[in-house]
């Protein structure tokens, strides 16, 4: 559990930021999936282990704030954090573009799944303009926030590790 200390602290801090400001920040008319982005960023920067922990905590927060069965989002997001972390962490060696592109692809799959569920429940007519007004808008918003959070988080974690390394000498 000691290995997860930094991940847990960073996750809790950013979850508080999300709780205070999350719903008030809107880009292109939609609220970015901040906690999904956070899980992806932590997974790609810290690896599958940290991605799994971060995903579970973020999912649990979403479950507690919503009405879905408790644990269902936590389950999905911890698996997402683990798989994304396992792949993106390796890709990060080749540069930061690939993890971001990977996240956009994952976000697109997530969005399409939500649209498919809506189409299944309410018919194809339900989807219609939602493809543009919600799907593409949220994809763009999530990509921008992911890029921003990725840069901030990578620098913050790098500084933290430098400071921790300096202290240990």
């Amino acid at each position: 559990m000691r290995d997860h200390g930094l991940t847990i602290v960073v996750t809790i801090l950013l979850v508080f930021v999300y709780l205070i400001l999350g719903s008030r920040i809107q880009l292109f008319g939609v609220a970015p999936s901040f906690l999904l982005i956070l899980t992806a960023c932590v997974g790609s920067l810290e690896g599958s282990n940290a991605g799994c922990v971060c995903g579970f905590l973020c999912g649990l927060v979403l479950d507690l704030m919503g009405t879905d069965p408790l644990g269902i989002t936590a389950l999905v997001m911890c698996v997402f954090g683990f798989i994304y972390g396992a792949i993106a962490f390796m890709e990060l060696r080749e540069g930061w573009v690939r993890p971001i592109v990977m996240f956009i692809a994952c976000d697109a799959v997530y969005g399409l799944t939500r649209l498919a569920i809506a189409a299944f429940n309410h018919g194809l007519g339900e989807v219609g303009w939602s493809v543009v007004t919600i799907f593409f808008a949220s994809l763009l918003a999530d990509a921008l926030i992911a890029l921003l959070l990725f840069i901030i988080l990578s620098r913050a974690l790098a500084r933290f590790r430098l400071a921790a390394g300096g202290l240990s000498v």
Binding site: D3, H4, E46, G47, S48, N49, A50, G51, C52, V53, C78, V79, F82, G85, A86, F89
Partner: peptide, 8 residues
């Protein structure tokens, strides 16, 4: 990095 399978 540790595999994290146990955590998962």
């Amino acid at each position: 990095q540790s595999s994290g399978v146990r955590t998962l």
